[in-house]
């Protein structure tokens, strides 16, 4: 009796989380799938017609924004990785007893609202703002030069906003590396770079994997940065979904687009996990 109870304990513990996922994720997913296959409008109501061509319609209509979102996400994730890795490395190996201070500083922007942070980037990058204004006054930049409403501004904002998502997993994986392994590498004739490439980098790959994953996915579907910092040529798939849903009330198209994005991201993640996540790949990356 007692053993049965203790065997059931993990399931009881998993129940609240499981229920949460079922009610707020799995069930809505089915609603959304069903909605994406309906036809009609808000006035006359929607009918389940299994209208699959909504999918081909949104893909042909919005493939530009779709591809742009993926490209932005690739660029932003790469930039975030390039900026975060040295940062996380430095905090993990060199910051000594100030580690938690620096981690707190990285998390500090989170205490300010996402929208406010993005708006302040708008303020910084404004056509006659605190950076551009003086430069234009000094005639170092042409009067019609602008950064806002360009891909550059959107990528800047996204990189800035999602940086902590990359730093934290990298930090965790780097911090876990036993420093004696680095000493052992030095002892075995590996200079600084070789020790990094053969020991630190391969051992931090799980952190790179996690960081890339949790940065790439929200960046690809973000719409706030493109709304505030972008223009008509920087629209991302998130903006399209938002417009279709809230402005056009075209629920089937919005749902179909969301589903397509989700499918594409899942496919990408599986491919990525196959390529990087397995131990064998880690080993070969380290050994040769």
């Amino acid at each position: 009796m007692r053993s049965l109870r203790s065997r059931l304990a993990p399931y009881w513990l998993a129940l609240p989380g499981g229920m949460w996922l079922a009610i707020f994720f799995v069930v809505p997913m089915f609603f959304m799938l069903s909605l994406s296959l309906q036809t009609g409008d808000t006035l006359n109501g929607y009918q389940q017609t299994f209208h699959w061509s909504t999918y081909s319609d949104v893909l042909s209509g919005y493939h530009v924004q779709f591809v742009r979102s993926i490209i932005y996400a690739v660029i932003v994730t790469s930039l975030a990785l390039l900026i975060s890795y040295p940062m996380a490395y430095w905090i993990a190996f060199r910051a000594g007893r100030h580690k938690s201070t620096f981690l707190f500083l990285i998390l500090l922007p989170f205490f300010v609202s996402f929208v406010i942070r993005t708006l302040s980037w708008q303020f910084i990058l404004a056509d006659n703002g605190i950076v551009m204004g003086p430069l234009k006054d000094l005639h170092l930049l042409p009067q019609d030069f602008h950064v806002l409403a360009t891909s550059f501004a959107v990528i800047c904002g996204l990189t800035y906003n999602f940086l902590p998502f990359m730093v934290l997993p990298l930090y965790v994986s780097l911090e876990r590396i036993d420093h004696r392994l680095v000493e052992a590498a030095h002892d075995l004739y590996a200079g600084r770079f070789a020790a990094f490439r053969r020991v630190v980098l391969p051992l931090s790959l799980p952190g790179v994997f996690a960081g890339v994953l949790i940065t790439f996915v929200p960046v690809a579907s973000d719409y706030v940065n493109a709304t505030i910092l972008g223009g008509t040529h920087t629209t991302m798939i998130g903006n399209i979904v938002q417009t279709l849903y809230l402005t056009n009330n075209d629920y089937p198209a919005a749902s179909a687009l969301s589903f397509t994005l989700m499918g594409a991201l899942l496919l990408g993640i599986f491919a990525y996990a196959r390529a990087l996540g397995t131990e064998d790949v880690m080993q070969t990356a380290a050994a040769r």
Binding site: R180, A184, V199, P202, Q283, A287
Partner: peptide, 9 residues
């Protein structure tokens, strides 16, 4: 503690 490289054979 030996400090063997855990990712290598």
């Amino acid at each position: 503690s030996y400090a063997l490289f855990p990712h290598l054979s």
